[in-house]
Amino acid sequence: MAGALVGAALAGVVPTRALQLLLGLALAYSTVATLRQLRLELPEAGEADPLAMRFGLEGSYYDGARDRDVKYRATRVRLGFAAMFGAGLLSGLLGIGSGAFKVLAMDHFMRLPMKVSTATSNFMIGITSAASAGVYFARGDIHPMLAAPVAVGVLVGAAGGTRLMSRLRNTTVRKIFLPVLGWLAVSMILRGLGVGLP
């Protein structure tokens, strides 16, 4: 949220194309990082992080695909926080969601299981989006007839996706996530370079 606030304050000062290029490059890095971990089902336990211990950043979840509980603990919390701040900054600057970065921060830097990363990212997006959506509503930017079908579609899709995710392996979730991430990276870099997309 702090990153988003700083980003929103800086928006308008930094040229949009430079921002899009920056976002595209960050997404490209995220794509490469995901590609390198494509076959990784569960991350190896890292060193005990004092901040993770202080805030109790650990837990367990029932993995339907493996039919057992999976325990996890976050590592490299400072790095994860820095990546989250960057995600919020870009989100605020460009007025876009930053779920892909949040997943990267948790999956790659904090070494959380992919399912934990995507579920946590989803929850965080709900909260941060509520804050900005309130502003859009008050500005009269939300037309009920346009927003309603989108909201219904997203809610139904999200409910189905969440149920499906519990039965999928982490590697499968990552494989689904990868092309989306790659497409976002390419489209943002092209926009940043001024190349129109069909």
């Binding site: 709900g126 909260i127 989006s129 509520a130 959506a133 309130g134 509503f137 939300i142 009920p144 007839m145 927003a147 309603a148 909201a151």
Partner: peptide
């Protein structure tokens, strides 16, 4: 009818805050 839809959208915005 659009006000009923708009009320639903407002509920959707408020729900995460209620979760917190």
């Amino acid at each position: 009818p659009l006000a009923i839809t708009a009320l639903g959208l407002v509920c959707l915005l408020v729900t995460p805050a209620l979760g917190v």
